[in-house]
């Protein structure tokens, strides 16, 4: 039950984009078409899950024993960058179909603050290894949910004819704000 609450909280209540405001760059950048949004979302789920596991191990096996907790941010950045590189090489060799599907989104994630954010929150909240992995995975799912919903919204927006001043990015930002407000309704869910 606690695991379920953790997942639900990461996906809906504490949604990375709409309530923590992390990963807004890919959220606005790759949400023009639902198909690319799904690709980006899947890549984020994949990387977040693995990076949560790796950064947890680094923190508790290396940083804590040597009292280097204050260096966690830079250690995590290093670990995530290396992990993404490794995954890319691995996929290109063994799962070329997935590599093709994730395409440019995989290297883009290296610098995605949502991935680093998930790693840092895991430590802050004192999650166990299993909880960390589950949190990372569901945070990624929450990101996917948000970006896919928003891609649908943006696709509808191409068919409207707003005043010139609102065309393009301004309208996108307003729509994102409205979506975030809608998601704030989930904060009423108490677990």
């Amino acid at each position: 039950m606690e695991i379920f609450a953790l997942m639900l909280s990461a996906v809906l209540i504490e949604n990375f984009i709409f309530s923590r405001f992390m990963g807004c760059c890919p959220f606005l950048g790759v949400s023009e078409k639902p198909s690319t949004a799904v690709g980006m979302g899947m890549a984020v789920v994949f990387v977040m899950t693995l990076s949560s596991a790796l950064t947890w191990a680094i923190y508790y096996l290396i940083l804590v024993p040597f009292h280097l907790e204050y260096l966690q941010t830079i250690a995590f950045i290093l670990a995530i960058a290396a992990l993404v590189q490794f995954i890319e090489l691995f996929l290109r060799r063994f799962v070329p179909a997935l590599y093709g599907a994730l395409g440019i989104y995989l290297p883009l994630i290296t610098t995605n603050c949502a991935v680093l954010g998930a790693a840092l929150i895991n430590i802050q909240q004192g999650y166990s290894f299993l909880e960390s992995v589950i949190f990372g995975c569901s945070a990624g799912l929450g990101f996917t949910l948000a970006i896919v919903i928003f891609a649908g919204v943006r696709q509808k927006m191409t068919f409207c004819n707003p005043p010139r001043a609102f065309r393009g990015f301004p309208l996108t930002l307003i729509a994102a704000g409205l979506a975030a407000m809608a998601f704030s309704g989930f904060s009423g869910l108490s677990m």
Partner: peptide
């Protein structure tokens, strides 16, 4: 990490 990536690049070379 660097070593691992270098090895991976060699092993997984396409």
């Amino acid at each position: 990490f660097g070593l691992l990536l270098a090895i991976a690049a060699r092993v997984f070379a396409v």
